[in-house]
Structure formats: structure tokens, C-alpha cells
Write a protein that binds this DNA or RNA. Structure first.
Lengths: 210, 210
DNA sequence: TTTGACATCCCCCTTTTATGGTATTGACAG
DNA sequence: CTGTCAATACCATAAAAGGGGGATGTCAAA
């Protein structure tokens, strides 16, 4: 049986020790490295070839979010679980956006870590309940507003479309060229996943995007 | 000075008498006929050449609404004021649709008739307050719903458009040809006074036509 | 019976949109 | 300083929609 390779970044040495011991209790896990900072994250990942990385958010020097970005630059497959003491949302989304796969509060580590590792390897996204709620809330907020990531200009043009204006009229209104309006609408359609003015207007009005 | 020629249809003979006497008090009015039924309405109008017709709604034989229709078949200029005891809406709209210009409750006749005659001759639409309210309410109800007089099929197609569907898809959905969908949308655009899908969808969703 | 509203279908032609490119500029972050 | 992103602009081709006709059949109202 092939062991699951685990790499650990955690500046609190006693917690790092605890993690190592906890994981070594299970013979299916192999710890391919444990570090107190992410200074050598690149080399550690390349040499260790981990299946799973446990990454503390708050570390001296390079923080966890930065470390994740660096890992993702050359490895999209390794599963990364963030560890943090705080369930504020300041870094949660940064980390998830950077490419983290899970997010555990340190106070949940002891009873959830093993399950979390299994989950990420199955393609899941383990996270502590309070983190999950943050994510859900964020989704709800983004829903119908930021989810599509429309730029201000795009929202402006979508709004004008939704008032029934033609490209030509919008161009005149905004003092830009017809072609530019077309370029914007193309991107709007991409972001909204639609393929016609009708769909876009429908979506805009029904989801109150404008 | 040219007298104002008035023709009266009213089955209640005492009220008819009262009307005649009331109007004869004013020298500018000439009564060119008074009838207890509308059986001879055509002939009476042709012979009497009235400027104003007072028409009771409820008469034996041909009712007032019918009589108005008959008059309008060959005379669009004579001003017609309906008289009724009831302010229910059952006949109000029928009469107005048939071409009546004013609508007085009989209980308001004594103090409003002269003013009403003056008003219709100036192009106004005199009506008792309770009738006016009926009309206003009806307008409010029609607003955004029946005002555009869309047929059921047209509403159905407008609704589908407003959900973002293309002509082609609508045709397939409804099991009719593409060209038919186009014909419907042309008429929808005419009725909505718009010239594009965007305008139509915008109007449909904002005014809750669908 | 005739008329009118409605729904259906078709043709021709023009205008508007959609799709997929490329390219320049300024702002801003790494 | 060098990407990236947003906004700007253009081109070519294809698809969709708009505007003008005309035509048929039904059905209810006049």
C-alpha cells in the first residue's frame, strides 16, 4: 500500500510536533517534511512530493497564503489544508482564492485532521463549521452581485441593455464606440454564461444584477 | 344665436318630462325630440339632427348601449350622455366603449345636467364622481396588464422571450414555426410600442406584463 | 353573411447581434 | 520594470432579429 505523503508548515513548534505525532500514529501516512516557516516551501514541495500540505496561515516571513500561491504556481494537484487559530474572514478567502483546498481551525485539528485529509484526497473541501458558514455567507452575498465579477463598466452597460437600449444607443450615451460596447457585452455574456441579449437582460433583471 | 339641439331617450315618463322642463328653462336649448324607447333612434337622430343626446341605459326594447352603437354607426360627432340609476360597472364600460361621451347618475341629473351638456360640447367627458372612480380604477387595473391588449399567445411568447429564449427555441417549445413566432413578436412590438427584443423584455419585466 | 380578431405560415430585405480574432492605452501590483 | 487588468477600438463572418409585405383558416361577434 502506497503511503500518503504529508508536508507540514507550522511555526508553533509544539503544535507542529503534535501534528507529526498524531499523523504518525497511522501507518498510511508518511510525513515528508515539517517546517517552522515557508521560506523553503518551493524546495520542500519539490523534494517531498507531498499528496497533502498542512499550511499554517500565520507564519513569520512568508505567510501561509503567499506560500499557497507559490505552490500553485507549479503544482495544481497537491491538496492544501490551511490551519488557523482565527475564524475571521480576513484571510479565509484569500487562501481559498490562492488555491487552498480545506480550512481547519486549530482547535478542531485533533479530531478532524484525519478526516480532513481523507476528504481532500477524495476531492472534498473540509473546513471547520464556522469557516464553512463564512464561505456560505460570502456566497450568498456574492450571489447575484459579485459572483459574475462584472466590472463597473460592464455593470453599467448591462444596466443600459436591461433598459432596452441598443448597442448604438449605449455607445452614444457613454461616448464610446459601438465596437467597444460590443467588446464589453461579449465579456458580459462570457461572465454571465449566456449567449444573447435576451438571456442577459433576463438574468440581469431577475437576479437584480442591475 | 344658434340653439343647442337636444334629443332625449328616457323610458320613465315623469323623469323625461322633468328633463324637458329643466332644459326648456334655458333658452339656448332646443329639445328636438323625447322618446320613451329607442325603437326609432335612427330616425329620431337623423330627423332631429341633435348636438347632444341624453340616453337612458335601461329601456324596454333596445337598451341604451345598443342605441349608442346604432347612432355611432352613422354619426361620430353627436355627443351622447348616458343616464342611469345604478353605478355598477356592468354597463358603464360597454357604453363608453360603444361611444358614449358622458355618464350621469340620475340622482345627479338635476344639478349637473346643464354643466354636463356644456362639457361634452367642449369635448369633455362629464361623469358622476362614482362613475369616474370606476373608470379610474379600471384604468389602473388595465395598466400594465390589459392596456397593451396582448392576446394570450402573445403574452405566452413575450414571457418566453423574457426568460431569454430565442425565436428558434420558442418555436420549438410551442411547436409552431419560426416565422409564426416572428409574426407574433412583430405584433407584440407594435402593441408595446417598442422596436427590439431588449425593449420588450425590459418593459415586460418592469411592468410585470408576464 | 360578413367582418374582425387571432393564430398560423411564407417571402424579401435590412439592421442588429453574436462570435472570434487582434491591438493599444493607462493604471496598478508584484 | 513588467505583467495583468480594464477599457478602449477595429475587422470579418455568421447568426439572429426587425420591418415590410402577403396568405390561410378558425371562430365569435355584428
Amino acid at each position: 500500500m502506497i503511503p500518503i505523503r504529508i508536508l507540514i508548515f507550522e511555526d508553533n513548534s509544539s503544535l507542529r510536533e503534535g501534528l507529526c505525532q498524531l499523523l504518525m500514529l497511522r501507518e498510511e501516512y508518511t510525513i515528508v517534511g515539517d517546517f517552522g516557516d515557508a521560506g523553503q516551501v518551493r524546495e520542500a514541495v519539490i523534494k517531498g512530493r507531498p499528496d497533502v500540505v498542512l499550511m499554517d496561515i500565520d507564519m513569520p516571513g512568508i505567510n501561509g497564503v503567499e506560500a499557497v500561491k507559490q505552490i500553485r504556481e507549479y503544482d495544481q494537484n497537491v491538496q492544501i489544508i490551511m490551519l488557523t487559530v482565527f475564524d475571521d474572514n480576513s484571510h479565509v478567502f484569500d487562501a481559498l482564492k490562492a488555491g487552498a483546498n480545506g480550512y481547519l481551525l486549530k482547535r478542531n485539528v485533533s479530531d478532524r485532521l484525519v478526516g480532513a485529509i481523507e476528504e481532500v484526497l477524495k476531492g472534498g473541501a473540509p473546513m471547520s463549521p464556522s469557516i464553512a458558514r463564512l464561505v456560505i455567507n460570502q456566497l450568498h452575498e456574492q450571489k447575484s452581485k459579485n459572483l459574475y465579477m462584472l466590472s463597473d463598466r460592464e455593470k453599467e452597460i448591462l444596466g443600459s441593455l436591461a433598459r432596452g437600449n441598443s448597442f448604438k444607443l449605449i455607445a452614444a450615451d457613454l461616448g464610446i464606440s459601438f465596437e467597444t460596447v460590443r467588446t464589453h457585452t461579449k465579456r458580459i455574456y462570457d461572465k454571465l454564461h449566456v449567449h444573447s441579449q435576451g438571456e442577459a437582460i433576463s438574468k440581469a433583471l431577475n437576479e437584480k444584477l442591475v
